[in-house]
């Protein structure tokens, strides 16, 4: 049998689905964009506004980790295998989606230039419109944090039911400071004076590692629930 079955499954099925889903969303946005022109001249970067949705989708998708784990265990795989193959999948997903988004930023820049529109990013962004490396790293970091956070919150609720509420505390901290660091959402109390891709990556590694540690704590000896059949 081939190795890393869970990872292979996730990459060949889930990643493909996620990429198609996001790419489809971008294309749809492209079609909708001209409609705005009817009302107001375009000055903002569409992908910069719409791209934020991705993080909530990532966290929501991550939340489904528990169901995925239950399915894997039902088919004879172990929690241990899941606990390392699933994070690897998340990492690959974050890289691929961040790459996709960076590509969309670049394509959008070209489109706006051809159309003669001005293109502003939102104020709190830490990157400039043309800084594709920093755009990539920012998205990568934020996506990785959202996916990891969603996963441990989801499994914590699966494992401890109501007690999973406690997982929301570290989750909120990770999302708030991750958002502040990458400049995707800033809250007055959560501010990080971090600059430069290397520092950001280092902080993300620590944050994501913490998320995965919590994931492992939730799944290592979790019992499969008897799903209530309809």
């Amino acid at each position: 049998m081939s190795r890393w079955p869970i990872l292979r499954y996730l990459l060949s099925q889930h990643l493909v689905f996620l990429v198609l889903f996001v790419a489809g969303g971008c294309l749809l946005a492209l079609l909708v964009l001209p409609v705005f022109l009817l009302f107001t001249p375009i000055t903002m970067s569409a992908v910069d506004v719409g791209g934020q949705v991705l993080f909530w989708l990532a966290a929501g998708y991550g939340y489904g980790a528990a169901g995925l784990l239950a399915t894997m265990v039902s088919h004879g795989r172990t929690r241990r295998e899941f606990a390392w193959q699933y994070p690897v999948f998340q990492l690959v997903t974050a890289v691929v989606l961040a790459g996709l988004l960076t590509g969309v930023y670049a394509a959008e820049a070209l489109l706006y230039r051809l159309a003669g529109w001005t293109r502003h990013l939102q104020d709190q962004r830490i990157f400039d419109a043309g800084d594709h490396l920093l755009i990539f790293v920012s998205y990568l970091c934020m996506l990785a944090i959202c996916l990891a956070t969603g996963a441990f919150v989801g499994t914590a609720f699966y494992r401890w039911e109501g007690g999973g509420v406690l997982a929301l505390l570290p989750a909120a901290a990770l999302l708030a400071y991750g958002g502040a660091m990458t400049g995707f959402f800033t809250l007055p109390f959560a501010r990080l004076a971090i600059s430069g891709a290397p520092t950001m990556l280092a902080v993300t590694v620590a944050a994501v590692a913490a998320g995965w540690a919590l994931l492992w704590a939730s799944v290592r000896d979790v019992s499969l629930r008897t799903r209530v059949a309809a």
Partner: peptide, 11 residues
């Protein structure tokens, strides 16, 4: 392989 009656084999 354990098959239960709850359809837990997939999403």
């Amino acid at each position: 392989c354990l098959i239960r009656d709850d359809g837990g084999l997939g999403d």
